[in-house]
Measured scan of single mutants.
Amino acid sequence: SDPSEDRAPESARVGNIPSSTSALKVPQLKVAESAQGPAAAHTTDTAGYNAMEESVSREKPELTASTERVNKRMSMVVSGLTPEEFMLVYKFARKHHITLTNLITEETTHVVMKTDAEFVCERTLKYFLGIAGGKWVVSYFWVTQSIKERKMLNEHDFEVRGDVVNGRNHQGPKRARESQDRKIFRGLEICCYGPFTNMPTDQLEWMVQLCGASVVKELSSFTLGTGVHPIVVVQPDAWTEDNGFHAIGQMCEAPVVTREWVLDSVALYQCQELDTYLIPQIPHSHY
């Protein structure tokens, strides 16, 4: 159930021909089969995070001529859309010479989310990475209204306002976009420790780096000194050995919190207090 199309920051360009055919990675995205229709094609874990990302398996898109002007500035990904909605975005992107990729990268400028009429969405990996990267996180209605009015409308009017977990109007995407000089995790050293489900560890690490944190791979690698705040992030329900995560405190002095601390902080683009996310640790033995 991992969102495989989000696994690594590679891009698939639509609308320009790469210098070599080997560089072309066409979105071959799968549809989750469901008797209840597209709305039930998501699996949500206890964290309220949509693990099964969206989309559609299609034939290789038709490439435009390399001489045609390509908008190098805009690059989009989509999240939560049905196959039909994805194809509408594809046509919109081609019309406006926008790069459409299946994986979010540093070059991505827009994340197009499936939302309700009030621009509230589910939480997906692309949603988190879009906010963390200060990108435009907009409703699919931006595409449909632009098509209806036959011009590209202003993104401000379609920015995602909230999500089904953290609140319907928290304005996290807007706050992140306007606060890239004040990253929420700066001054923190974060170790993403142990197993994680539904989200590859490297993507979680990239997320906290985008928010200004330094990533530490091992508990023994924390910088011990003033001005640096170490934090260990774990996902308790992913551990097979009972309560192993309670013993992390015996290996390092850092506070240990659940992954929800990261996800909530990123969604709201406000660093949350650790208290409600802390995992009790077995104290050091004193002999």
Rank of each mutant, 00 (worst) to 15 (best):
2 D>G: 01
3 P>G: 15
5 E>N: 12
6 D>V: 06
6 D>L: 07
6 D>P: 04
7 R>M: 10
8 A>F: 11
9 P>H: 12
11 S>D: 05
14 V>M: 04
14 V>Q: 08
15 G>C: 08
16 N>E: 07
16 N>F: 01
16 N>Y: 10
20 S>L: 06
21 T>Y: 06
21 T>W: 04
23 A>P: 14
25 K>V: 12
26 V>N: 06
26 V>P: 10
27 P>I: 03
29 L>P: 12
29 L>V: 12
31 V>P: 10
32 A>R: 06
36 Q>A: 13
37 G>E: 10
37 G>I: 08
38 P>S: 06
39 A>I: 14
40 A>N: 13
41 A>T: 07
41 A>V: 09
41 A>L: 12
42 H>P: 12
49 Y>L: 07
52 M>C: 13
53 E>P: 14
56 V>R: 06
57 S>Y: 10
62 E>V: 03
62 E>G: 12
62 E>M: 10
63 L>T: 09
66 S>F: 11
81 L>D: 01
81 L>V: 14
81 L>G: 04
82 T>G: 07
83 P>A: 07
84 E>T: 03
85 E>I: 05
86 F>T: 04
89 V>P: 05
89 V>K: 01
90 Y>A: 08
91 K>V: 13
93 A>M: 09
94 R>T: 12
97 H>R: 11
97 H>V: 10
98 I>G: 06
98 I>L: 13
99 T>I: 09
99 T>V: 02
100 L>V: 08
101 T>H: 11
102 N>S: 10
104 I>N: 07
104 I>P: 02
105 T>K: 05
111 V>L: 03
112 V>L: 10
113 M>L: 05
116 D>H: 00
117 A>E: 02
119 F>I: 02
121 C>N: 01
125 L>R: 02
127 Y>P: 01
128 F>M: 01
128 F>P: 00
130 G>S: 03
130 G>L: 00
132 A>S: 13
134 G>F: 04
135 K>S: 14
136 W>T: 06
137 V>P: 01
138 V>S: 01
139 S>G: 06
140 Y>D: 15
140 Y>R: 01
141 F>H: 02
141 F>K: 03
143 V>L: 04
145 Q>E: 05
145 Q>S: 12
145 Q>C: 03
148 K>A: 14
154 N>L: 11
155 E>R: 02
156 H>P: 05
157 D>S: 08
158 F>T: 01
160 V>S: 00
160 V>N: 00
163 D>M: 00
164 V>W: 07
164 V>Q: 11
166 N>G: 07
168 R>Q: 06
168 R>C: 09
169 N>I: 07
170 H>T: 05
171 Q>A: 02
173 P>I: 02
174 K>A: 04
174 K>R: 12
175 R>V: 04
177 R>L: 01
178 E>M: 11
178 E>P: 01
179 S>K: 00
179 S>R: 05
180 Q>P: 11
180 Q>V: 08
180 Q>F: 09
180 Q>A: 06
181 D>G: 09
182 R>T: 11
183 K>Y: 12
184 I>F: 05
184 I>S: 00
184 I>P: 12
184 I>T: 03
186 R>A: 09
187 G>C: 06
187 G>A: 14
190 I>S: 00
192 C>V: 08
193 Y>S: 09
197 T>P: 15
199 M>P: 05
200 P>H: 11
200 P>T: 14
200 P>C: 15
204 L>I: 05
208 V>Q: 03
210 L>Y: 07
212 G>S: 00
215 V>R: 10
216 V>L: 14
217 K>N: 14
225 G>R: 06
229 H>G: 12
234 V>L: 14
245 F>W: 13
248 I>W: 13
251 M>V: 14
252 C>R: 14
253 E>L: 08
254 A>G: 12
254 A>Q: 13
255 P>R: 08
257 V>G: 01
257 V>C: 13
258 T>I: 07
258 T>E: 05
261 W>G: 00
261 W>T: 02
264 D>V: 02
266 V>W: 02
267 A>T: 07
267 A>K: 02
268 L>F: 10
269 Y>Q: 13
269 Y>A: 08
270 Q>R: 11
272 Q>V: 12
272 Q>P: 07
275 D>R: 14
275 D>N: 03
280 P>R: 08
282 I>N: 05
282 I>L: 11
283 P>A: 11
283 P>Q: 04
284 H>E: 10
286 H>M: 08
287 Y>Q: 09
287 Y>M: 11
